[in-house]
Computed example of a mutant assay.
Amino acid sequence: MRKITLRLLKELPEKYITSGLILIIILFIYGILGSYFIMDLSFVDSVYYSVITMATVGYGDYIPTTGIQKVFATTLALSGVALLAYVFNVMLTSFQERMILFSRGARKMKVIEKMDDYYIICGYGRVGKVVLDELQRRNQNVILIDKNEEAVEDLEETDSLIILHKDATDNDLISKLAGKKCRSVILCTGDDVINIFISLTIRETNPNAWIVSRASKLENVSRLKKAGANKVVSPEVIGGQDLYFESARPHLLNITVRHELDEIFDEFEIISKHGCTLENIQYHLPGIETPLVREIKKNDLTDAKEFKNYLKTHDDKMESIKNLYKIVNNIHSHVISGPDAETFDKLLEDLEKNEEILGINLTNKEISEITRKEIEK
């Protein structure tokens, strides 16, 4: 019922105002012809009589006397009042609705202006939903743009999620939002042509914007890159989760460290203190280039404390982790997501005080060389 009501309100202004105006014209023609043939008035007087009768002014200069004239005058007056009242009521309702929408839009823009930084998601489908879930899990501010109100009706707006029922191809809107405070624009619409157009629009006014786009067809990957997208992801190859990682690439840090098992909780405390998220831990087995990856996706210190208590009460689990650390010679890597480069600098400064940092953003091959040297010792 709610969907039907919203649809009717949306169609009301254009559809019914046009129909009302057409009916008024038809009624006006009826009034002229009736005045001319039934009231025996001239053409000019017929126009005059039709107007004052439809408007119920009735100056009394032309008075119907016969039965048919009275019937004609009555039908013209009643129809005119009904139609004019209908049209003006619809126009007023339309104006009020647009004022409400304008007011809501203004309030949302004020909330966006107060945001320190945010991600923009264009299109909320199956892929867009996964991306939004990943961003919200990391407590990120998100602006979701989708002109289909039904697609986002189940979402609830918060201080960190703003939903705009707008067309993402609107030049002024997307150009304004994709400014300095925008960390990344993620194009999740299923139409590659729309994604290309949005990329071109953003790149015209924001040359430094970080744009990640979905490509529904593999052959459009190169076109999207030419249009200005920094990264193009095809759901045929990887999913929405990887869209988030690509969009956050300027805000990801991969550090390779060496420390004892007892220090992992101090390390997590430092990461949490700087508002960063430990995405995963990569254990580098000596002589093997591909690491053993363990997903974490946590930034809450409570999780680390619970895990620490769990190990204390489960000796077999504690022994397994100790053996893992022995196998990798205490060498492992962390993929950490954070707000900006300045935060990463402070994070690294604190980590260096507690553990040995072997390298930053090293390739698996470079790390393999380090572990190989450990074997030779």
Rank of each mutant, 00 (worst) to 15 (best):
I4M: 13
L12N: 07
E14Y: 11
K15Y: 14
Y16R: 08
G20E: 06
I26T: 08
I29H: 02
G31D: 00
I38R: 08
I38W: 00
D40E: 13
D40L: 08
V44F: 07
V44Y: 05
V47R: 03
Y49V: 07
Y49L: 07
I52T: 00
T65N: 13
T65W: 10
A73S: 11
A77E: 07
G80E: 05
L83M: 04
N89H: 09
L92H: 14
S94W: 06
E97H: 09
I100N: 06
L101G: 10
S103Y: 10
R104W: 08
M109I: 12
V111S: 10
K114H: 11
C122T: 11
G123P: 03
G123I: 11
Y124P: 01
G128K: 02
G128F: 03
V130Q: 11
V131G: 04
V142I: 03
I143P: 04
L144Q: 06
L144T: 02
E150G: 06
E150D: 12
D154K: 12
D154G: 04
I163V: 10
H165S: 10
K166P: 00
D167Y: 10
D170H: 03
N171C: 12
K176Y: 14
S184T: 10
V185G: 00
D192G: 06
I194L: 13
N195A: 05
I202D: 06
E204W: 14
T205I: 12
T205V: 15
N206M: 03
P207K: 11
W210Y: 12
I211F: 01
S213L: 03
K217G: 07
L218K: 14
K225W: 07
A229F: 03
L243P: 00
L252E: 09
L252I: 10
L253C: 08
N254F: 08
T256G: 04
H259E: 15
I264F: 08
F265R: 05
F268E: 05
E269A: 15
I270V: 14
I271N: 06
I271R: 02
H274W: 05
T277L: 08
Q282N: 12
Q282L: 10
Q282W: 03
E289H: 01
I296C: 02
A304Y: 05
T313K: 15
K317T: 06
E319L: 11
Y325P: 00
N330G: 02
I331C: 12
P339K: 14
A341T: 12
D345T: 14
D345G: 04
L347T: 02
K353H: 02
L358H: 05
I360K: 15
I360M: 11
I360Y: 13
K365Q: 10
I367Q: 04
R372T: 13
K377W: 09
